[in-house]
């Protein structure tokens, strides 16, 4: 059984932990480099990307996170996690870690009143998964090394580069665990 971690600085860590436990995994909340050293896979959850960047800087977590991604262990990044993982972030421009060669526009579906549920296009490699978009970002450019894992109305919403899978929606907030299972398997 894999021991998985969910970055728990702020945001949707609780819901991801529930989904992973449902798949039979042991789950740790990760707040320090020591916590990170103990896990075999990591979720970068939704939440506020500005808050995450500030806490990652203030508590010197960037180097350990970069080392974790470089180690090849599986990583699932959702919403704010996608924004942190992208090569480029716009509207407004913001620093990011460049693990997935995509450009991401923040809050591009509008404010909370425009948040919505739907399912992925049926031809999506990961399947027609349930999706919940909350003040969600949009992937506006996909680099050549990036594989598109799910689309919504033809537009990429879940992508993968190497060991990092990143999505604009919240698979942890639906009863559909297929995205988590595709990344981490069952425990």
């Amino acid at each position: 059984m894999a021991r998985l971690g969910v970055l728990a600085l702020q945001g949707g860590y609780d819901a991801h932990a529930r989904t992973l436990r449902g798949l039979g995994h042991t789950v740790d909340e990760v707040r320090t480099a020591d916590d990170l050293a103990r896990v075999d896979g990591l979720v970068l959850p939704g939440g506020e990307s500005t808050t995450h960047l500030i806490l990652i800087d203030r508590f010197a977590l960037e180097a350990p996170l970069r080392a974790f991604v470089a180690s090849g262990k599986p990583v699932l990044a959702t919403c704010c996690g996608l924004i942190l993982s992208a090569a480029e972030v716009v509207s407004p421009a913001q620093r990011s870690f460049g693990w997935v060669d995509v450009t991401v526009a923040r809050n591009a579906w509008g404010r909370q009143v425009h948040s919505f549920e739907d399912t992925a296009d049926p031809e999506s490699p990961v399947g027609p998964v349930s999706m919940l978009f909350i003040r969600a970002p949009r992937i506006t450019r996909v680099g050549p090394a990036v594989e598109v894992r799910a689309t919504y109305r033809g537009e990429p919403v879940l992508v993968r580069q190497g060991n990092v899978t990143a999505g604009a929606f919240h698979p942890e907030l639906t009863a559909d665990a297929r995205v988590h299972e595709a990344v981490f398997g069952r425990g």
Binding site: Q10, G46, G47, Q112, H114, S115, I134, H170
Partner: peptide, 20 residues
């Protein structure tokens, strides 16, 4: 596309956890 469902509302609250 189902906009502003109850899960979408609670979802934003989930995203604020651990925050100020």
């Amino acid at each position: 596309m189902d906009v502003s469902t109850f899960p979408a509302k609670v979802g934003l609250a989930e995203m604020l956890k651990g925050g100020v």
